[in-house]
Design a protein around this nucleic acid. Structure first.
Length: 947
RNA sequence: GCGAGAGUGGCGGAAUUGGCAGACGCGCCAGAUUUAGGAUCUGGUUCCCGAAAGGGAUUGGGGGUUCGAAUCCCCCCUCUCGCACCA
């Protein structure tokens, strides 16, 4: 008597699929519709799969299985984003090589995914840590290194779209004569300064106690997350990628993709394009004092009017960026970021101590501390002044950390009258405030940032903001004191890490006689790639901020080139993002030894048609991947301008809902809204469902209904102890039940709480399906004797066709929860009927198969089919079969439902109205009233309006 | 603070896009089967009044448009998720 036993049938079909290579994508067939469906690249962590993974993976699997049955050629690969810190930290703790840990974790992940029955083409699997893969990651880095961005290049891509601006080979960069005159080395340095991959000093979080560099997330309040050790900010030579050069392209071409608006918006905000003005404030040549400042101003202005606004700010001016040039007359002081190069020079002797102290303080703070915690504005006066270019008045120059060196020019003109931050600062330090926009009479606040006529602004007075901006910009332009650049919030991408477990850079630094870097570089030739990580060396922290690879064996770290130049290998490694930036390309051609992807295969399979993953990658991964894609596109390696067509974010799965009550120190219950979580010192008590009841909006304690109880679901976390392990669910209920439950929980994109009894519900459904098809009481598996080759009746056929239609349409909408409920309705209706026509059961199994493939294969097989149903044609529905002879039509009187009438489905309005009026329940409500209007919508409803 | 999304039974969620609110599942209640438990099957289950027939209320709250609103418009409240001194 075989019951539904997933533990028996699931491994069997998994083995069958593997043996028969059922889901291997064959050679691309021209003319047949293709579908490339991709899951976001998982990091194979040591904890194994969590229940969030199967959510997206099941969704994509359903689409793929469905599309194979509709005749599409489907590309559905899986691989591993396996470089990264956890394996390295594990290695430092245990001495196990990260490679070993990584490949062991991959084995676990692969086993778990196979256990869930996903239809990946495993022959395409790879890991970012495979040298055969990172060889091409390094090659792409060399392409970036070999590319400069020509903002003026007008061209039409293979996609037919016209663009201005293109990444071009560095050899095509025009060398100015004065550079060429400086010789070969000058030319090389000039080229290096234009490459998309370049070097730059950038601060890192150096923790001397741990002897390692930490990421921003690992630093909390200036202390290390592990061990609370102090963290310093140190400038270090780093690699940067000039993603900002592509900012406009990344922004504009968002219109080419089918992504959720919210994700597009996040990207737009992250790129943060703003147009404003750069304005130069005269400070005089070095050594100018406040007394002598005035003297040079007039002649400087005259020079500028004659020569115009220079590209680079000279030593005699402070250049600021502002989006509100119309408020220039209200600029009553200036502020420099503590890191601004002019700070030292502008600080007068008596202020030196205060200023350098302030700079040191700012350097110690992380970016987070400087923003989040700095409620009260801080700063120091340099003692120097600059001249406001529109009215010639000297204004003080301050240093404050509310101005960031990395945005705009690192200096601002402060307009406290129209800027809240500047107002706050002016209040603290008692600086003058001048309103230059007329606030409305009822305006109560401090700084006024709204629109209004300009005041106290001479030739701008009376103009609204936009007009005033235009007017002042043309004035600044004419006098050579300002210009209108575009600014981005987006920064260039810090592309190096001081870690061992990442891709090495294919870069060599030239050394001088003393063994110091000259700043000149050479690259590893393409054919010598990959650059492997060194073997046999201790990757433990060596106690200095520079990368662990600095301690690599000399034969890895040094060599002498043919011309006798001593070279030292780049010792930084690439960040984890690198490998995930292009993996979707490699899947189209994973074994290619000649290229990163064959151009024909790229054209065949790209772009990704459906990309599903968590919203945590809304900005960075998607932006970085788009950036690399565009560089490769510009360089002629790709035919598609965007990597991902349709993007869907799966929602988070929370832990099971919890009911929590609170008791104070005395042990008395306290209502949850009365509790201030920050100060509450009592205990929280977990309650069961029968201890509480619903009263109005809230849950309250049954024993004391005055006490309000918290009811909510929390994010799964080890510390909360509410983590669900997919292995346990599979062991208990089977993979099909887990897959179906995760799809049945609610809409794919919604955040939703886990429910163990929900899993049981779905598992019971699979049991009903099993009994509908099989004879449970027989000793060996055999079809249920109610299943017979008889004709289905009209009602059954209507239900079948309705189910086919709904399930098909729901899958296409990714509305899996409603598709499953349709399948349930079907079994509820025919699961007990006898006989059960084969012609009903077989299409049903096919409809079920994308969701619960194992049980479906088993039942299909039981009904006498020799081979897998994976490529059976998907059932089709017949609209004519959906029609019924009669329809129940609701009848309303004054909008309230008062009855229902059954009429022929093709009845005309008069017939329907007559039937409605004669309905007993309706007639009662019409009786004695005047009929004002009758609305009859055939096939839908009737509404009588009466008085 | 700014931005986005969401508020529907005891719970997760449906609702053809303006036309029978609560599909489907969980939970609960009753019945059948069973020595019993489990499993299974059948029926019921938004709330209130009522023995019933029936009636009333109801999609976070308030207002509006409409014959008709969960759905469209305005105001407010709550929750979740991003971003956060970007000049």
């Amino acid at each position: 008597m075989p019951r539904y036993d997933p533990a028996r049938i699931e491994p069997r079909w998994q083995a069958y699929w593997e043996q028969h290579q059922t889901f291997r994508t064959g050679p691309y067939e021209p003319g047949r519709e293709k579908l490339y469906v991709l899951d976001m690249f998982p990091y194979p962590s040591g904890d194994g799969l969590h229940v969030g993974h199967p959510e997206g993976y099941t969704a994509t699997d359903i689409v793929c299985r469905y599309r194979r049955m509709t005749g599409h050629q489907v590309l559905h690969p899986m691989g591993w984003d396996a470089f990264g810190l956890p394996a390295e930290q594990h290695a430092i703790r245990t001495g196990t090589h990260p490679r070993e840990t990584t490949y062991r974790n991959i084995d676990t992940f692969r086993r778990q995914l196979k256990m869930l029955g996903f239809s990946y083409d495993w022959s395409r699997e790879f890991s970012t840590t495979d040298s055969d893969y990172f060889r091409w990651t390094q090659w792409i880095f060399l392409e970036l290194f070999d590319t400069w961005y020509d903002p003026d290049c007008e061209w039409t891509g293979p996609d037919g779209r016209q663009r201005t601006g293109r990444g071009r080979p560095i050899a095509e960069l025009a060398i100015p004569d004065e550079i060429a005159a400086g010789g070969d080395e000058a030319v090389r340095r000039y080229q290096d300064s234009h490459r998309l991959a370049y070097q730059h000093e950038a601060p890192v979080n150096w923790c001397p106690a741990l002897g390692t560099v930490l990421s921003n997330e690992e630093v909390i309040d200036g202390l290390s997350e592990r061990g609370d050790h102090p963290v310093e900010r140190l400038p270090l030579r780093q690699w940067m990628l000039a993603i900002t050069r592509f900012a406009d392209r990344l922004l504009d071409e968002l219109e080419l993709v089918d992504w959720p608006e919210s994700i597009k918006l996040s990207q737009r905000n992250w790129i943060g394009r703003s147009t404003g003005a750069e304005v130069d404030f005269y400070i005089g040549p070095p050594e100018t004092s406040t007394e002598t400042l005035d003297a040079g101003f007039a002649s400087w202005q005259a020079d500028r009017t004659a020569c115009g606004f220079p590209d680079a700010a000279g030593p005699d001016v402070l250049r600021v960026y502002t989006t509100r040039p119309d408020t220039l007359f209200g600029a009553t002081y200036m502020v420099l970021a503590p890191e601004h190069p002019f700070v030292d020079r502008l600080t007068i002797d008596s202020q030196k101590e205060a200023v350098s102290g302030y700079q040191a303080q700012a350097a110690a703070k992380s970016d987070l501390d400087r923003t989040d915690l700095a409620k009260e504005k801080t700063g120091v006066f340099t003692g120097s002044h600059a001249v406001n270019p529109v009215n010639g008045s000297p204004i003080p120059i301050w240093v404050a950390d509310y101005v960031l060196i990395s945005y705009g020019t690192g200096a601002i003109m402060a307009v406290p009258g129209q800027d809240e931050r500047d107002w706050e600062f002016a209040e603290v330090f008692d600086l003058p405030i001048l309103r230059t926009v007329q606030a409305p009479e009822d305006f109560q606040g401090k700084a006024y940032t709204g629109d209004g006529p300009a005041i106290n602004s001479e030739f701008l007075d009376g103009l609204a903001i936009d007009d005033a901006k235009a007017r002042i910009i043309s004035h600044l332009d004419e006098t050579g004191q300002g210009t209108t650049p575009v600014n981005f919030r987006l920064r260039d991408w810090l592309f190096s890490r001081q870690h061992f477990w990442g891709e090495p850079f294919p870069i060599w630094h030239e050394l001088d006689d003393e063994g110091n870097r000259t700043g000149l570089m050479r690259t590893d030739p393409d054919e010598s790639l990959p650059v492997e990580l060194p073997e046999n060396f201790d990757f433990k922290p060596h106690g200095r901020p520079d990368p662990p690879l600095e301690e690599a064996p000399d034969d890895w770290l040094y060599r002498t080139d043919d011309d006798g130049t001593r070279l030292k290998r780049e010792s930084n490694s690439m960040p984890q993002w690198a490998g995930s930036c292009w993996y979707y390309l490699r899947f189209a051609d994973p074994q290619n030894q000649e290229r990163f992807v064959d151009p024909q295969l790229e054209q065949n399979w790209l772009p990704v048609d459906l990309y599903i993953g968590g919203a945590e990658h809304a900005v960075l991964h998607l932006l970085y991947a788009r950036f690399w894609h565009k560089v490769l596109f510009d360089r002629g390696h790709l035919s598609t301008p965007e990597p991902f067509g349709r993007l869907v974010n799966q929602g988070m799965i929370l832990g099971e809902a919890e009911l929590t009550g609170y008791r104070d120190e005395a042990g008395d219950w306290v209502s949850s809204p009365e509790i201030d979580t920050a100060t509450f010192a009592g205990e929280s008590v977990s309650l069961s469902g029968d201890e509480v009841e619903k009263r109005g909006e809230n849950f309250v304690l049954k024993s004391d209904p005055g006490i309000v109880i918290d009811s909510r679901a929390f994010k799964m976390s080890k510390s909360r102890g509410n983590v669900i392990n997919p292995d346990d669910i599979v062991a208990h209920y089977g993979a099909d039940a887990l897959r179906m439950y995760e799809m049945f929980m609610g809409p794919l994109e919604a955040t939703k709480p886990w429910s163990m009894s929900g899993v049981e519900g779905v598992s019971r459904f699979l049991g009903r399906v099993w009994r509908m098809i099989t004879e449970e009481r027989a000793d060996d598996p055999c079809p249920n004797r109610a299943i017979q080759d008889v004709a289905a009746d009209d009602d059954q056929l209507r239900l079948l066709h309705l189910t086919i239609k709904s399930v098909t349409e729901d899958i296409e909408k990714l509305s899996f929860n409603t598709a499953i409920s349709r399948l349930m309705e079907f079994t509820n209706a025919v699961g007990q009927s006898d006989p059960r026509p084969t012609a009903l059961m077989e299409p049903f199994i096919l409809l079920l198969s994308p969701f619960a493939p194992h049980i479906s294969e088993e039942l299909w097989n039981l009904l006498g089919h020799e081979s897998s149903l994976a490529y059976e044609p998907w059932p089709e529905w017949d609209e004519a079969r959906l029609m019924t002879a009669t329809l129940d039509i609701p009848v309303q009187v004054n909008g309230k439902l008062r009855g229902k009438v059954t009429v022929a489905s093709d009845a005309d309005p008069e017939t329907i109205q007559a039937a409605a009026e004669s309905d007993e329940g309706v007639a009662r409500h019409l009786d004695g009233k005047t009929l004002v209007k009758a609305i009859v919508i055939p096939g839908r409803m009737v509404n009588f309006v009466v008085k």
